[in-house]
């Protein structure tokens, strides 16, 4: 079954989790990656992280007793999903460029 599109927030969250990050780190990283365009709100991020953990696309790492902040990292199946999404986005960009006379 073809995969449905990921939301922008989910795409950027998963992209940020190539290395373990806690919630606030994800927000900062997404903002940096998108040049300040995408600002994740705490409630939205919390819901997205829970859904991604349930799907097995990211893992919640055991809590670090020093920081007491929960960290997350992408799983192999998450990486596969991300690559599929990237290819879907490439198709959109290629078709857009071809029909609008871009590159």
């Amino acid at each position: 079954m073809p995969q449905t599109a990921l939301t922008e927030a989910v795409f950027y969250i998963m992209l940020s989790l190539q290395k373990p990050l806690h919630g606030y780190g994800i927000i900062q990283n997404v903002e940096k990656l998108s040049n300040g365009r995408v600002k994740l709100a705490a409630g939205t991020l919390y819901g997205a992280l829970n859904s991604l953990v349930d799907k097995g696309w990211i893992d919640a790492l055991p809590e670090n007793p020093e920081s007491r902040k929960k960290e997350y990292v992408i799983t192999n199946s998450g990486k596969t999903v991300l690559k599929e999404e990237l290819s879907r986005l490439s198709e959109l960009v290629d078709n857009g460029n071809r029909l609008l006379g871009g590159n």
């Binding site: 939301t7 709100a41 705490a42 409630g43 939205t44 819901g47």
Partner: peptide, 14 residues
Amino acid sequence: GIELYSDIDSKINY
């Protein structure tokens, strides 16, 4: 200000 929901789905759920 504190914004808890930045996407439409979360706003709908709320």
